[in-house]
Design a protein around this nucleic acid. Sequence first.
DNA 1: TCAGTACATCAACCGTTCTTGATGGGAGAG
DNA 2: CTCTCCCATCAAGAACGGTTGATGTACTGA
Lengths: 104, 104
Amino acid sequence: MPATTATDLHLAAERFHALSDPTRLRIIGMLGGGERCVCELMAELDAAQSRLSFHLRVLREAGFVTARRDEQWIYYSLQPEIIAELVATLTMPRQEWKRAARCC
Amino acid sequence: MPATTATDLHLAAERFHALSDPTRLRIIGMLGGGERCVCELMAELDAAQSRLSFHLRVLREAGFVTARRDEQWIYYSLQPEIIAELVATLTMPRQEWKRAARCC
DNA sequence: TCAGTACATCAACCGTTCTTGATGGGAGAG
DNA sequence: CTCTCCCATCAAGAACGGTTGATGTACTGA
């Protein structure tokens, strides 16, 4: 049974929220070219370090990116499956939407 | 020329923001079954009228729904194209993302 | 051990968003 | 015209989100 419950609605809302910021969308765009360390993102986005760290945390907690330490650097990379899931949510058939909407 | 500019990033962010709320996702789910008047949405969602009106305005300004008056009732219906556009954004090839991300 | 680099986290501030209750305006019935 | 129903909008307050500067932590190299 595909658990399309209210919990899923909240989960989907959180994921869409993670995409509701231009800076975060730019980060995702950069990570589309492969993993990057924070310093590279900082340089290209011209963003303060704490600001970038904040947005990376949002993306990480929403499941869009993962972090990997290598020596002193921490490399972020995209998690493609979650985007596919989101697309699946958007293209969900009417029945599923109605179930999700009705469920409290 | 597909104008994938920073403006588009902001536009995409605004659209994702419109989807970043469980109540609005439920509304979209209900409208997936066809157009509804506000009173029907109120009854099913058990939401205050002003609250619902607020969320409908957000969805309307983001382009997800349209309103139509019939007698004393105002019927809202889904605008499917914008969802398709959003899916296209999510499944955009890397080049486009990088262009959008780089552009300031 | 000490200094330097890379990144996370914290606290504070401010603008935005969401909710609630009240007001207003359009449409139909009497 | 008046009353009622349906809905939008407004005002006020609470909650949330994003930015900044400072502090903390992990790792490296001297």
